[in-house]
Design a protein around this nucleic acid. Structure first.
Ligand SMILES: [Mn+2]
Ligand SMILES: [Mn+2]
Ligand SMILES: [Mn+2]
Ligand SMILES: [Mn+2]
Lengths: 223, 223
DNA sequence: ATTAATTTTTAGATTAATCTAAAAATTTAA
DNA sequence: TTAAATTTTTAGATTAATCTAAAAATTAAT
């Protein structure tokens, strides 16, 4: 392995990993350009380079998918990102809406010794502050099955285990209405017209949630 | 301040700070090229850029010195570097010879909130694992007066407060012969021919040190 | 099945950071 | 105080990452 990825290459690999639903599903040039806030022409150039390095599979006009080594790299970056987020929240008292941007920088620090010691220092956490699973040193992830709150029906119960994205405005709003990971939640009513919901939460009682919110909250698939 | 320094610019600013003995003393193009492991031609280009950004004073063929804003930036980077070193040693159990390289990366993470929270988390340390002073949030350093062990004479006593450089081989050697910060040391003999010394250390007793070593060890100037 | 719209790629430039080789200025030595 | 040595700067290229504009391929719509 005479390779060390540049910061840009790492960001491409991570984006391909996160956009691709399954490891095989191809990611389009435009989707990457959107995600990386760059232009399709730039992406075209870069994917040629990554393909040449055998990190992705690429056929012209057909999009890209990560190779085995590409996936391995992606998981390493994601592991670092999420471990640093745990550090920032658990030890530096950041709020969950403040850590993503800093972790975007810290995920590029190169030292496997550092990552593994950080992992131990944190107590080998399995999820990050947003409920996302943390890959272990070998890149393995243990992801419990979950569904969106918006997919639940009246009288269903479950436990909040994650949020779908890390938009600070969403996270701050959830803070404001006292929704956090680990809470038991029960759907008391679903409004057919706009998919808004009334839910019952411990202590808080019944609150109203729009579909904008319920489609961002992950609930453990019980049993 | 519409400025954010690139990683490269930060490294130049830091190098100028560390090479320049006093804030006024001019740093030569070649000295910078050596320190940054690059070529003089490259340095010439970059110092023009930094001068244009008013981070340094520069006159052709006369070398460079940091401006007030340049110094401020340098101190911010050095603060981050040393705080991260403390974290790595005190919380992740790295040895003092393993942290410099990782800190070279971490010092470029941009978030003043992060640095200040890290500072608090670490208990607002005033020195790093090598005895170097840590600038506070306002860039102030409190540096106790010190001298080199090699400058001491027979029967002088003092306390080891730092090492002059962070070469892992030096640090590992000091570990091996059980020399560390905080030890009381007494010069028992100085050999005029090669400036080698015999010193007395608590528990260890009398050991022999070459000038290569004694010129790297800092002793507090007592009172 | 053509045509139109969209997506993707190529062509040609630009910027930051770097290099080598050569010219210019400064410093050191004879 | 000239000449030699050293240092520093300039000139001209290169590489990575980016852009705009235009061409080519694919996909969607008549
Ligand atoms: Mn994140
Ligand atoms: Mn996260
Ligand atoms: Mn260091
Ligand atoms: Mn240090």
């Amino acid at each position: 392995m005479g390779n060390s990825l540049s910061l840009t290459e790492e960001n491409y690999i991570k984006a391909i990993f996160q956009i691709g639903t399954t490891p095989e599903s191809n990611v389009s040039t435009n989707a990457l350009a959107d995600s990386l806030q760059t232009k399709p022409a730039t992406v075209s150039d870069m994917i040629k380079k990554l393909s040449h390095k055998k990190l992705i599979f690429y056929e012209k006009y057909k999009g890209v998918a990560l190779s085995a080594s590409g996936s391995k790299e992606a998981l390493k970056i994601i592991r670092k990102h999420r471990l640093w987020e745990v550090f920032l929240v658990n030890h530096l008292n950041f709020k969950w809406d403040q850590v993503h941007e800093i972790a975007e920088q810290l995920e590029h620090i190169k030292s496997s010794e550092l990552v593994n010691r950080l992992d131990d220092f944190l107590g080998n956490p399995t999820i990050d502050p947003h409920g996302d699973p943390i890959p272990d040193a070998k890149g393995r992830v243990q992801l419990g099955p979950s569904k969106l709150l918006s997919e639940m029906t009246s009288h269903e119960k479950g436990i909040i285990v994650g949020v779908k994205n890390e938009d600070p405005l969403l996270l701050q709003h959830l803070d404001k209405i006292n929704i956090r990971l680990g809470l038991q939640i029960e759907v008391t009513e679903v409004n057919d017209f706009d998919q808004s919901m009334q839910v019952n939460l411990p202590d808080l009682g019944i609150i109203f949630l729009s579909e904008k919110i319920t489609s961002q909250i992950l609930i453990a698939k019980n049993s």
